[in-house]
Design a protein around this nucleic acid. Structure first.
Lengths: 349, 349
DNA sequence: TTGTATGCGTTATCAT
DNA sequence: ATGATAACGCATACAA
């Protein structure tokens, strides 16, 4: 028994024990086992097992420039949507032999910059970015250096990069069509502050576009901060002003949460005032009579991001134009968009 | 202007441009700027800026053995509890100059092993483990090699390591005390399959202990799989059998979700049958009349894990005995544990 | 099929 | 205060 239970065995030690050269051991662990004689393979295998040898990725990365690391920047990790997508990203990474370095920015551009620098220092081979906001500049630099980068959900107009996310126009169309078909005529579009977040902008604008083209529908839109009582006030004013039947269209999960709270606080029965939210959440079926949502294919979005990244990685050199991959949402109809007295055959909550 | 917009500037290039030696540049970026003359500092700073130089962590890790990487193994990343803790872990990491490598195991011991190997290959300096299940063996090895490791929430009895998590006994005590004080006398304890998950075991056992000591209370416990209709059946049978007032105690967030569904499906008003869940979730205030929960201090738990890890890292050598850090939950009382007709002054939903 | 020699970017040791 | 040089663990061109 060797005395030292030291830190980590190296390729050299394995070579010595196996009575082979560093090269052979290296080959053994680099998918070139076929080139070694069965006898040597066995010796190396045994030596490695005995020593608990694991190739050092740091050294590997240093030599070949291949860190086998992908980075993911998440704007808000406590958002279930982000986590769901991340789950897809991570699975796809694993399947392709990559590991995922995750950083949460809490929607803070400063942290975004910090983490970007960090990723760079670990020589990640690709980046999935769900950006907080502005720093198209540093991202631009990275892309300029040839780092594959895909923008997830949120994108910056100035930045020429691949994009993956929801088809926001389609989502708003589906929402409006559904509400219309269910008999609602007055629509309130509620968003978090639009600011620079592209999905918010797109949904916001599409709502206006569509309403302009639908004489049968009437509506308004607001983008309050969600922390105060603003949502409640807006809904109350809207309902006082609007004719019936009226409905609220929530631009994302956070808004759905806030709007549900507000409607409940006002003692309003869902359905009587319609409620439809973009983003499906665990509890949407639980609040009576169930909240209608547009679910995003989060897993698929995550996988697509990785796939796009690795595609770029493979044929680096050829400069394909930026590609955008948009996914359609799925309507999950529940009681919150069923007018009392109506008898549409909807999926039950 | 140099022609090549190549990949990454190295310390050597910076040294050349700054007309200095590699050593000086290294010192500049390793927190030893004081030892350099102001003039040299300026030259290096300028050269680095101009070249967009970033120290290569891979090379750093290779040389000094300091990867500045922490690994976190998560059993189920889609569980909001896990994410909340992870948020704390990540923040604490960042504050201490570490990066976090996250791996989700989806409760699969095989993936757990794979990811553990992976972490080892990246020479993470510490591990936060929210284990799927069994492989105390590989974890034991890592600990034996001197790798700081803290068990989060779930722990393996066989493994001598630091532990951080909720005080499960206290949680069950608080739950029972609250239900009792609210007038409930028949208790149904509902858990996910207990199996090897230590928190489930502890809560499960504590419930039985406590009930044995309380003649005024009566109860039973079950740990069905959550995917079928089992929960509904169990609740129905329990209510048929039990006298009133009866309450359901949910061992975690997933169970709370399932139980709420079941109670709703049976048209039971919450409160009339009590409902209390361990784990606070976004929507618990939304389902009328609000679901009472025991909230875990997730952020604090995450931070504590990192702190414990770094403490070990600092005084490696001294072999302190394993330490366990337990946090108390916070009761958030809502309508689901208020019997109709009662008039307790509870926090409103 | 197997081995030798060199270099990846950095820090540590030892000079000056 | 600054620099030269040797590792760190591995992959790879080249040689045998």
């Amino acid at each position: 028994m060797p005395a030292r239970p030291s830190r980590h065995a190296t390729i050299l030690e394995v070579a010595r024990v196996a009575d082979a050269s560093k090269t052979s051991v290296s080959r053994y662990f680099s998918g070139e086992r076929e080139r070694l004689s069965p006898a040597l393979q066995r010796r190396i295998s045994e030596a490695a097992r005995q020593l608990g040898y694991r190739p050092n990725q740091m050294a590997r990365g240093l030599k070949g420039g291949r860190s086998r690391l992908l980075g993911m920047l998440v704007a808000d990790i406590r958002n279930p949507y982000s986590v769901a997508v991340m789950h897809g990203v991570e699975k796809a990474c694993r399947e392709r032999g990559f590991s995922l370095l995750v950083a949460n920015t809490d929607n803070d551009p400063t942290q975004e910059r910090t983490h970007l620098a960090l990723f760079a220092s670990y020589r990640v081979e690709g980046l999935v970015v769900n950006a907080a906001g502005s720093p198209a500049h540093e991202l631009q630099d990275l892309v300029g250096q040839g780092l594959p980068l895909v923008l997830l959900d949120r994108w910056l107009e100035e930045l020429e990069a691949d994009r993956v996310g929801l088809d926001n126009e389609l989502a708003v169309d589906m929402a409006i069509d559904h509400l219309r078909a269910q008999g609602y005529r007055q629509l309130l579009f509620l968003s978090q502050p639009v600011g620079l977040a592209s999905p918010r902008q797109q949904r916001w604008q599409r709502f206006e576009q569509r309403l302009a083209g639908e004489p049968a529908l009437d509506g308004e839109r607001h983008d309050p901060a969600l922390d105060g009582t603003a949502v409640s006030a807006i809904i109350e004013a809207f309902l006082a002003r609007a004719g019936h039947p009226a409905a609220v269209l929530c631009a994302n999960g956070n808004v759905t949460l806030a709007a549900t709270r507000a409607l409940q606080a006002q003692g309003i029965r869902l359905g009587e005032v319609g409620l439809l939210g973009i983003d499906e959440l665990d509890w949407c079926g639980l609040v009576p009579p169930g909240i209608t949502t547009l679910a995003q294919p989060t897993e698929a979005i995550g996988r697509a991001a990785v796939q796009q990244l690795l595609a770029r990685l493979d044929d680096s050199g050829t400069t394909l134009p930026p590609r955008r991959t948009l996914f359609p949402p799925t309507l999950i109809a529940r009681g919150s968009t069923r007018l009392p007295g109506t008898d549409n055959d909807q999926e039950t909550p």
